[in-house]
Structure formats: C-alpha cells, structure tokens
Amino acid sequence: MSNDFEFTQPIDICEALKCLNETGRITPIAGGTNILVNMKRAPIETDLIIDLTRLEKLKNISEENGMFRIGAGVSFADLLNWHPGGAVEGLVRPMCAAFAGPLIRNLATIGGNICDASAAADASPVLLALDANVELVSTTNGSRTLPLSEFFKGVRKTAREDNELLTYVTFGKPAEGERCFYYKLGKRKADAISIVSIAILAKLNEGKIEKVHIALGAVAPIAMRALQTEAMLIGKVLNTSSIQEAATLVVKEACPIDDFRATAKYRLNMIEVLVKKGLNEILSKA
C-alpha cells in the first residue's frame, strides 16, 4: 500500500530529536486528535510517525521566578485541573472547559494544539493574551525561544523547523489585579468548533488602561492579537466611549472568512460584540 509508514516511540527528548532528523516525510504525533482525523479522511502522506506521548518530562507544569512553564505534552484535561489562580486560571480553565469534549481533552495536548496551528484552535487566543513564548529544540539549532505570535506563520503553518520539537509554552504570571475575559462562541454548548473566540487580559490603574491584550481566534488565517485596538486603548479611561471605540476598531483588524460555521460578516459583528462584552466585564470588575 502506498500509505505505509513507520512508527517510532522515543522515550526521551534526546531520542525524539534524533528521530526528527531522519530523512523522509516525518509526522510527530502527540494526542493524535487532529492527525487521526486526517488519516481517516485520506491516506496520510508520511514516511515516519514519531509518537511523543512517552516524553514524560513534557507532561509537567512548573512555576519558577514568576514564569509558568507548561510542557507541550500536557493534556487539556490536566490543564483543566490546574489551579494557578488569578487571571491565568480565569483564562485557561474556561478555555479548557470549552475545548472539544472530555474524551478529546484526555488526549489532546497543548503542544499539539499549537503546532496544528488552526485559526480556530482554542488554546491560541488565551496564550496570545498571556504573551506566551514557545521553546523549540533541535540537534542542529539547539534551543530557541520565540513569541507565540511569531510562531504562527499562516494557515496551518508555523515557524517550527521540520527537525524541531516544541517542548514548552511559557508565560509570565500576570500582576496582581490584572483582569481577564474569555468567551468562545460555538453552535452548541459542548464539543463545538469555535465560530469566534476571544481572550482579554487587562490592567487598569485609577480607571485608566495600563495594559490590555486582546486576542482573537477564528477571525483571520492565524490566531491574532488586535494590536491597533490595544494601542488605541492604552492610557485611556475605560468607559463606554473607549469601549465603543475599541469595538469599532477591532473589526478593522480582523479578516475572517465565510465557512460552514459562520459568515465573515457574522464573525466581524461578533468580535465587535464580544470586545464590548469583554471590556465591559473588565470594567464591571473594577
């Protein structure tokens, strides 16, 4: 059969990196919840599958010097049971609860969700709002760290070199008093693919916006930050008029498509609605 491939299961990172240097078409697999869907629909174009599920080291979450470090192999079910408190928990837990369903959450990993680089990936907006970085390792380039916003390159395209392994997602612990908002709009309550999702992290100082991150999913080829809107808001008093201004501006930053789940028009309407909803909620928590 034309679609025969080999399978290997490295037990540590070092071995995994060696496998990634093999010649031919290589497909790393973690939770498998995207790759096996593709395999079911059409024969997969690969020579070697590298199973990353035995890299125990990458299944840990740690906190050091105000930085959170999440192993790429951490599942969404594990993340859902993680209680870091504050804005991190306020963003991560509702996202995990809205991520697929409990069965898939037991398999799918944070690293896999990022590397699949779907515009509608649930983890991306939350991690972008948290200003996350990703750590990549390879035998040729050693280790490098880059912002998640630079990792996403296009529709299902990332900055990961073929022989690189995504090992960790890291982000700083938000300061005390930072507020957050997360919303996923889908067609049903459980196990829905997002029509639009939004994550906001903000800090107010005497009513003025000192920091604001607005991240959006499913409204552009890649998950994105609404940088112009953020810049416009900085230094302003968060009130009805600045919120309206943000909602109007954010629509200009997105470029959604029509697909089966929604039209581009509705998506644009919804980011306007959700930015307003989110900033209002942040204001009300003040």
């Binding site: 399978f7 096996l36 409990p102 037991n106 398999l107």
Partner: peptide, 9 residues
Amino acid sequence: KPVNSCMIL
C-alpha cells in the same frame, strides 16, 4: 481515563 480509541494508534 476515557478516550476515543479511534484517535489512538
């Protein structure tokens, strides 16, 4: 843990 056995090699 409950998982989909169609999603695992």
